[in-house]
Amino acid sequence: MSLLRLDFSLFPDASAGAEIANLVEAEWTAAHPGEPVVRRNPGTDPLPADAWALATTAATTPEPDHSPAQREAFALAGTLAGELAGADAVLLAVPLYNFGVSQHFKTWVDLVITGAGGPNPILEGKPAVLVTVRGGGYGPGAPREGWDHSTAFLTRIIADVWQADLTVIERELTLAATTPGMESLRDQAARSHAEALAAARKTSLTPAAG
């Protein structure tokens, strides 16, 4: 039994997502003492920006004709896909940056898809938890309702393409406590924080029976 944890925050020491993910991991560790946790931190140890293009061209080029850079990128894609396919459970902490998908998450996804030989269901039936956090408010009635262009993409990839048994934990308004002009949102932010922590404590990453 192994857990693959991926953190995409640029600021891990102050990451609101990591706080929630730490609780999910603690629950998993308590249920599976001594079992390995494989970690990758693309936010602070980013994947090469040109790796996907190199891996993609390598996939359509005869192996003897691969350049050294293509060979390295294709091997990286295979490693990332193998990590994901080999995990029994997956935990991802992905923030919303500038209203869209983290570039580090997108690069990782592109490489995994290449390494897996296409958009294959490599997590079929496996439990996964996505922790996603947003500095502002994007819910129904908010001035920026509909501006979150990340969460739907994340769930589409993890649940629909890779077919994981996905649980999503969301926290909004993480900047309310420190940002002038957001004072009126602090009670709402505190509720969102408390609800996310409660969800993390009761989230199970144990595969479903059968």
Rank of each mutant, 00 (worst) to 15 (best):
L130K: 07
L130Q: 05
V131W: 04
V131L: 07
V133I: 14
R134G: 02
R134P: 01
G135L: 06
G135Q: 03
G137S: 12
Y138S: 07
P140A: 12
P140L: 03
A142K: 11
A142H: 14
R144N: 14
H149A: 13
H149V: 00
H149I: 00
S150F: 01
S150I: 01
T151P: 01
F153C: 03
F153H: 14
L154I: 03
T155Y: 02
T155K: 15
T155F: 02
R156F: 11
I157C: 10
I157Y: 06
I158W: 13
I158F: 13
V161Q: 05
V161L: 12
V161S: 02
W162T: 03
Q163Y: 00
A164M: 08
D165V: 05
D165C: 05
L166G: 06
V168I: 13
E170K: 11
E172F: 12
E172V: 01
L173N: 05
L173M: 14
L173S: 08
L175K: 04
L175V: 06
T179E: 12
P180I: 08
G181H: 09
M182V: 05
S184H: 14
S184K: 14
L185N: 08
L185V: 01
L185Y: 06
R186L: 07
D187I: 09
Q188G: 01
A190Q: 13
A190W: 02
R191Y: 01
R191H: 10
S192H: 13
H193A: 07
H193F: 08
E195D: 15
A196I: 06
A196F: 09
L197Q: 11
L197K: 07
A200M: 11
A200F: 10
A200C: 11
R201W: 01
K202R: 15
T203M: 02
S204G: 01
S204A: 11
L205N: 04
T206N: 03
T206E: 15
